[in-house]
Design a protein around this nucleic acid. Structure first.
Lengths: 226, 226
DNA sequence: TAAAGACTTGAAAATTTTGTGAATTATTAT
DNA sequence: ATAATAATTCACAAAATTTTCAAGTCTTTA
């Protein structure tokens, strides 16, 4: 597994540890948060979290609220851990874009199966490192890109940038975020260099360059539709 | 590709044809079966099938059962084609030793990528330690290399490097990766020593030296085509 | 609708990374 | 010990990419 980050949010240490142990065994990287506020904080400090496992019942800010706040900016998959009695609430949850429910007490094995399944279908990152979006297929392992079946040559940075975009489809990315992720965090130069790379990328992707949208005053977003 | 046989099992002719066409284009040999029983029969009549692409939902005998029966005798890689709703079943599947899941409707391209990846990791290395790629034949046991049938003398490191490349065909390898694998992980020296070895290797392999591609800013990749 | 601010773009400048031949330092064989 | 062979390092040329810059366009907002 390509080193994906999973954020586990629960106020009970016991539960966090349990889930974490299972995740670690499957080679996921695990971040933890003990309450809703911390969860939101951790999530936005790490902009590459692949999935959140979120308890509903928590002090300070409950799971629903966490979900709402995160959904304003991100489509990251969320698995909710609910008490048996919360069934009623699931209605709310699906509207909020929750991907799965698992009621406590749960079987870690099933939870893991769901995690795998969701990551497989959402992040499109399979073990082969192939990411797809529209007519673009990127093979991270082979370091190749195809647009409409035809190979396209990208430079190192262009490739990195495209991968970053594709792994964050539908998410508006600020220049700062892009800089932090695609460039080294100690990069000092002009953020405008991103623009130049975007320009080149768009040109090389031809029609599919339109997948990269400009978000005026903010940054860019990669999206196939819309 | 060394003429590998792939068995495609699906009750819909349309799907079989689609998959077959793509596989044939990649120079695989394709066998077909329209239901589970036929699949098992065909599999055991041909003892050199390299991979099975298996639909779950089929008359007579479903994919799970086919999987179970074949697994009693063989570790042949299996890719399952599942309906979206079958995710739940994946638990069962992984226990049965299914290698991959692809949910319908699927992108043929992704399917092909998976096929390639699986075959690359499972079947490349012949039983006798002979690896082939294009016009190069390496015998790990005898420690010999032939290019176009003619023996080529390589030094120890050159040989190791070539073997590493050939065991990782199509994969972009960073200098660090190469260093860790071909040199001892505690090697301290300059990574540029790789460049020098690559240079020598390319020279000794003559025309076939082109198999070693430079990936600018990243490292090298060994690939016969492209 | 004009001005200010934010993106695009093309091209030049600056920087990085590679390729190579030769020098230097192990290692092995004689 | 000495010669031969192999592995590294070095230095500089060559190649390719990244960044900067300036002028042109497009958006937003007053």
């Amino acid at each position: 597994m390509a080193d994906l980050k999973v954020l586990v949010v629960d106020d009970e240490v016991r539960i966090r540890k349990l889930v974490k142990d299972f995740l670690v065994k499957k080679e996921y990287r695990v971040l933890e948060a003990a309450d809703g506020e911390e969860a939101v904080k951790v999530f936005f400090e790490n902009n590459d979290i692949a999935l959140i496992i979120l308890d509903v019942m928590m002090p300070k800010m409950d799971g629903w609220q966490v979900c709402r706040e995160i959904r304003e900016y991100s489509k990251v998959p969320i698995i909710m851990l609910t008490a048996k009695s919360d069934e009623q609430d699931e209605l709310t949850g699906f509207e909020l874009g929750v991907d799965e429910y698992i009621s406590k007490p749960f079987s870690p094995k099933i939870l893991m199966a769901r995690v795998d399944a969701i990551l497989r279908r959402t992040s499109k990152l399979d073990e082969n490192g192939v990411i797809t979006a529209g007519n673009i297929v990127v093979n991270k392992v082979a370091h190749t890109v195809e647009v409409n079946g035809k190979p396209v040559d990208l430079s190192y940075k262009e490739f990195e940038l495209l991968v970053y975009f594709m792994e964050n489809q539908g998410i508006a990315l600020s220049r700062e975020q892009i800089l932090n992720n695609v460039w080294n965090y100690d990069y000092f130069g002009d953020a405008r260099t991103i623009d130049t790379h975007v320009k080149k990328l768009r040109a090389k992707l031809a029609k599919e360059g339109d997948y990269i949208k400009t978000i005026w005053g903010m940054g860019y977003k990669f999206e196939v539709n819309g």
